[in-house]
Nucleic acid binder design. Structure first.
Lengths: 196, 196
DNA sequence: GGCTGCAATACAAACGTTTGATTGAGTTTA
DNA sequence: TAAACTCAATCAAACGTTTGTATTGCAGCC
């Protein structure tokens, strides 16, 4: 093996393992075997198993950076929400393990939760809250809406759909071909739900 | 220790442990210590650690049985949905670890997933789908609604609100005092979203 | 009643295995 | 030659399980 293949191989190979079984469910021997790399390389490059896991998590959550764009976009509030829905869904398609790391850390937090996961989630929620508040000033929304409940409802419709897939695959069609229909469906409910 | 205290103590003590750290994150010594019971009692009563975990899961998911009532209720469809929302939220309040076991199994499935968790989830979704189909026949809903997307949207609004609490506690008020407001809020969005 | 035998409950100690981590010497590659 | 990497061996600690023993309560029998 040449160059820095080792480091990359370890990260690539451990993503599906950590995603499926969690930090405690995977042994260093298993990871090293899947990466086709010697066990000692984990300590060599990452200082240990937790270091590798943290590197994986950092890489997975790096894709969230794109969300910053939304603030500068010159479109109306509902279009911003639709952009968020579409971006989130396409992110889950391109990075099929991301939601697993999200929910795994939310339910069984590791050392990485406070440092990596929580700030990432707060950032997204905060961004959605600002978008909503912006929309309020244009008075397009009906009165009595709680900002937090509203944006969490939108986020919940998207995320729960993907979270439930392992249990409802036989009941619900989760095919990517339906994503545009799903986006339209979610935005329909949300729009009718919050507009005057 | 007298009678069958051991067995009960083990289950009671292991619920918060398994919920917080998952099956692999908790050792039998930790569980036995928390239960104030000898380590070997786990194998004695449950045949091993996995058996104890399965017993805990079965107990946690037993509360879902109540949902059967909904089918026989003589109220209109939207009231049924509201009953479901209220029942789900009050269940999460009374059984604060239930959602953890849900999502933990969805993201990092153990041997219990296929036997216990998946059937429980399918049952709920199926029940919601039937409720929705019932409502359709009375033509109260607008056209173009996808049944699965619709009921998952409703379930998502509820569940995601609780799932996100560890990350958004500083941003969103998750106090039980707000539950009725939350129910009204979710039902408002959902009702406006699906009615003609 | 008094005794015996048994099954259930509980405990402490030890078992063999796997864990994550480290080491040091050797091999490859640029 | 220096850096990247392999390989096998080794370590202490933690793991889940099993073993052997002590205690208890109760049924059956004399």
């Amino acid at each position: 093996m040449a160059d820095n293949d080792c480091r990359e191989n370890l990260i690539t190979a451990s993503i599906p393992l950590f995603a499926a079984k969690g930090l405690n469910g995977v042994s260093v021997r298993e990871v090293a075997g899947a990466a086709g790399v010697n066990l000692s390389m984990i300590s060599y490059y990452f200082g240990g198993k937790e270091g590798l896991y943290a590197a994986v998590l950092r890489e997975q959550f790096a894709v969230l950076e794109k969300l910053d764009e939304l603030e500068q976009m010159d479109i109306d509030t509902l279009q911003k929400f639709e952009w968020y829905v579409r971006a989130t869904i396409s992110r889950y398609r391109k990075s099929p393990y991301l939601l697993r790391f999200y929910t795994s850390e939310l339910t069984n937090p590791t050392v990485c939760f406070e440092a990596i996961v929580k700030p990432a989630i707060k950032k997204v929620v905060q961004m959605l809250l600002e978008t909503f508040t912006d929309g309020l000033s244009h008075e397009r929304f009906r009165e009595g809406l709680n900002p937090a409940d509203t944006v969490l409802a939108l986020a919940g419709m998207i995320n729960f759909y993907f979270l439930l897939e392992p249990a409802t695959a036989e009941l619900v069609d989760h095919a990517p071909q339906r994503d545009e229909e799903l986006i339209r469906h979610i935005m329909d409910i949300f729009t009718r739900g919050i507009l005057k």
